[in-house]
Amino acid sequence: MNLAKTLRHLVEALMAMCMTGMVLAVFGNVLLRYFLGTGWVVSEELSRLLFVWLVCLSATLAFGEGKHLGFDLLTARMSGTKATVLRWLSRGLIALALWYLVRGSWEQVLVGMDSRSPVMNYPLALGAAGTLVMGVCMAVLLLLQSWQDLRGDGPGEQAAEPGRAQP
């Protein structure tokens, strides 16, 4: 799965870029205010847009790595058929949430094509596109996991998660 690895590196690089950009935008504004007595108009809007994308990208990565917080009090005690049923039930519910997230984001992207941000004048669709990309990528990862589970690659979820082989 070299493609998966390359993709992960790409996403990580984008995340690091967003974080750097956020730091520069906010810190730059602080410097300007103290040393030149003026502000940088773009600072807030830019840092927020980068933040939205940072969150969407890294939440997707964390999804692939199975790192989102959850309860395993019940599931950890189950094994065999019961565990399988719960796993598929949980996947089905996640899929349901993702379906509406993607649909809603898509409609908001369409709405946001024609609306611009007050300062930078970027189309607001750019923000909604973040959750759209996140939802679609999470759905793809979920399908991949399910497929690997069905094929019987390793015992269930653990081995089936793409991106587990974190250095």
Binding site: G112, S115, S117, A128
Partner: peptide, 26 residues
């Protein structure tokens, strides 16, 4: 205001009152 505007355009909310200045982007 911006979030409500987008919800109105998308039909997810019915009415609002807000500043005209934030509508400049639309």
């Amino acid at each position: 205001d911006v979030q409500m505007q987008q919800a109105l355009i998308g039909g997810a909310q019915e009415m609002m009152v807000g500043s005209t200045a934030t509508l400049v982007g639309i």
